[in-house]
């Protein structure tokens, strides 16, 4: 048997290329899914109506527009659907075909999700540009360091989201299905990540508590970085916390995966 004759980056590039081809095969459905990510727009309309009379906290109508359009962009770029893939494949035994290949399935799942970025970007980038143009540049940060940090914060938010989805997906090894756990998680995410309410409108005690929970690092942190509503120093601290949660989620996912695979019964012929 010959040794590996091509470098590892070739694998990553090919995983990405094939994943992209797969994403393109589902382009119609993918765009429908992306259009379904419309909660920030609904919230924008609602909060704008509220702010028409008087600002809410520091948010006037334009601040809300900048916030929720940024939220939409970050949400579009950080989506992951590995929970569905894992639940389906664990349940019907198809995961076996990943397990017999000499690449950890986490890499394959990641590549499949990352490969959808170009399609997601097709929708997210124009929204981002339109947001700056419509709302006005003054509602976004002018600190170049924060703009440099923004893509890192977005990528890290995706990785955190993906890692948490892995953790929830792995629960399907033990519970047959982990969609219930996902629903619980998603409801908490909606409330505490800044998806429907800017986190800085919560009471101070809750705001402080949320710094020690993963939710704000999935959405509010990159958005606040782009808007400049947190200082560069605070953003760096948040980035460190974000990576702490990424490390924690990945570690839990790896442990759950190892235990799950041991009890996996590879159902079906």
């Amino acid at each position: 048997m010959s040794k590996r004759a091509v470098p590892w980056y070739d694998l990553l590039v090919t995983l990405f290329k094939v994943g992209f081809a797969d994403a393109v095969a589902y382009r119609g459905e993918m765009f429908v899914w992306l259009l379904a990510t419309n909660m920030p727009l609904i919230m924008l309309v609602l909060w704008s109506a509220v702010a028409a009379e008087a600002p809410v906290g520091r948010y006037g109508q334009r601040e809300f527009a900048a916030y929720f359009l940024s939220t939409l962009v970050v949400r579009l770029l950080t989506g992951a659907w590995v929970v569905w893939t894992m639940n389906l494949e664990i349940k019907n035994g198809q995961l076996a075909m990943r397990l017999i290949r000499p690449v950890h399935p986490f890499w394959m799942f990641a590549a499949e999700n990352v490969a959808a970025w170009p399609l997601r970007a097709v929708m997210a980038v124009p929204i981002g540009v339109a947001a700056v143009w419509m709302v006005g540049g003054q509602y976004f940060t002018r600190d170049l360091r924060q703009w440099a940090l923004f893509p890192i914060a977005v990528l890290s938010a995706w990785l955190l989201n993906f890692s948490i989805m892995l953790v929830i997906g792995c629960l399907a090894f033990f519970w047959q299905s982990s969609f219930g756990a996902f629903e619980v998680w998603f409801r908490l995410y909606i409330v505490f990540s800044g998806y429907v309410v800017p986190v800085d409108l919560f009471p101070r005690v809750l705001q402080d508590a949320l710094r020690y929970l993963p939710f704000r690092y999935l959405l509010a942190f990159p958005v606040e970085t782009a808007l400049g509503t947190i200082s560069f120093t605070t953003a760096l601290h948040d980035l460190a916390r974000q990576w702490l949660f990424i490390s924690l989620a990945l570690a839990v996912a790896v442990v759950l995966w190892q235990r799950g695979v041991r009890r996996y019964e590879a159902f079906g012929g």
Partner: peptide, 10 residues
């Protein structure tokens, strides 16, 4: 093509 990359075949 995917298997070529996974198994590292020249």
């Amino acid at each position: 093509e995917l298997n070529r990359a996974i198994y590292g075949i020249a």
